[in-house]
Structure formats: C-alpha cells, structure tokens
C-alpha cells in the first residue's frame, strides 16, 4: 500500500510542528516499535484492537479534562473541598479516568503560587492533561525548576511579585500533582464552560495563570 505523504506545510492543525521523522526514512526506533508490536501480537500477548483502544484513550485525554475539573472547583465550593481533600476521588466524580494514581491538587492563592515538575523523569498528570510537552521532560526544566523556579517561570512569561511564595512539587511514578489556578477577577457570573476555556494546560502545570481573553 502506498504511504500517503500529505502536504502539511510542517505545521499540524493544533499549530505544533510535526516531528521531522514522521514522514522521513524509517528510523531504527520505528523499526523496533513495529517489530516489538508484531511479536507481541503474534505471541497472543496483545491484540491490534487493544493497541488501537489504548491510543484512542490517550487521544481522549487532553487539558480539557483538567480544565473542566478546575472550572467545577471554581463554581462549586463543596466540590473544591473534596478535590483538595482527595484529588483522585473528586476527579473520578467528574468522570475522569485516574488509573491507580494518587492525584494531589495544589491550590494557588493570593500569596502562594504552585508549579509541578518531575526531576527524575517525566511523571505528569497525564490522565487529566494528556501526554506531557517536550519541555516538561527536558533537562533544563527538570534541573532548574526546583532551584530557580522564579527565573524559569519568567522565561515562560510569568513574572510573580516577590511577596508571592513559590511552591514546586516534584512528582513521582505513583503520585501526580496538578495545580488549581486562582479564578481571575472579572469572571463573575461566567458558566463552567466559559471558565474552562481560559484554563490552559500551562495553568495546570503552574507555568502560567489564567488570563481573560482580549
């Protein structure tokens, strides 16, 4: 079967570049992936359907899942209390798929800003935000976020006043953090849907804060 090479101009519909290796010559890692996958299928360990279902589940996980939870917390104080007390249980209440992870929700307040990192690898609240961006897994972010978070946040365009305390949470394989941003002024009377629309992935990592459109 011929391989389709669409002319995408180098930019995906989401505005992110494709990796250059997506349509290029077969790499060693790609050949290994195909080989491992086919051996697992031939041995009856996984089915092609299970792999497709796992990818569909992955694709369904996006920051929109986390944003709905944040918007609910902003509009329902009882839910927010449950979310802060037991993040996993409250996220499940919203229909989010949490697997076996312990989810800890850390709340931004007028005097404290929170951010998350995984200094050892790439642990991330992927069930609520999707797969982590490349920079989250980079040496630069992992190394510096725990030593000079204010400077790193400034590189993301987030300049915090000196009186705001910065708390950085280092994730583990079994425990994931997510930031509950502060609801911005000027959003009084907004619907949950309107609120969710201003809660970006970066707000829930803690390298940004929600901004009103325009």
């Amino acid at each position: 079967m011929p391989h389709d090479h669409p002319d995408h101009g180098g930019i995906s519909p989401s505005g992110h570049p494709y990796r250059p290796d997506q349509d290029g010559p077969l790499t060693e890692a790609q050949a290994l992936e195909i080989a491992v996958r086919e051996l697992l299928i031939e041995k009856g360990i996984v089915t092609a359907g299970e792999i497709a279902a796992a990818i569909a589940r992955m694709d369904a996980r996006s920051p929109a899942v986390g944003a709905r939870i944040v918007a609910r917390a902003w509009t329902d104080p009882a839910f927010k209390a449950r979310l802060l007390a037991d993040g996993s249980a409250a996220a499940r209440e919203m229909g989010a798929d949490i697997d076996a992870l312990k989810l800890v929700v850390v709340e931004n307040t007028p005097d404290t800003h929170n951010a998350i990192v995984c200094t050892l690898c790439s642990c991330y609240p992927r069930t609520l935000l999707g797969l982590p961006p490349d920079w989250y897994k980079s040496r630069e972010y992992r190394s510096r976020m725990v030593r000079e978070p204010r400077r790193v946040l400034a590189e993301f365009g987030l300049h915090l006043p000196p009186n705001v305390r910065v708390r950085v949470h280092d994730s583990t394989a079994d425990m994931r953090y997510i930031v509950l941003p502060a609801r911005p002024a000027g959003t009084e009377g907004w619907s949950e849907e309107q609120l969710a629309a201003i809660v970006t992935r970066d707000c829930m990592i803690g390298v940004a804060v929600p901004r009103l459109p325009g």
């Binding site: 990796r19 200094t119 050892l120 920079w135 630069e140 190394s143």
Partner: peptide, 22 residues
C-alpha cells in the same frame, strides 16, 4: 537532575507521531 545547572528552558513541543503513541 533536580538542582543541576542548565540553560534556558526551550518551550519545545510537538504532536506525537503514531509510532510514538504506539
């Protein structure tokens, strides 16, 4: 790596290719 010296964070990201998701 926590605390090691390192350069500026490059805000790179990409859409994952099918082989990566697999």
């Amino acid at each position: 790596m926590g605390g090691d010296p390192a350069g500026p964070v490059i805000p790179a990201e990409h859409d994952f290719a099918l082989w990566e998701k697999r």
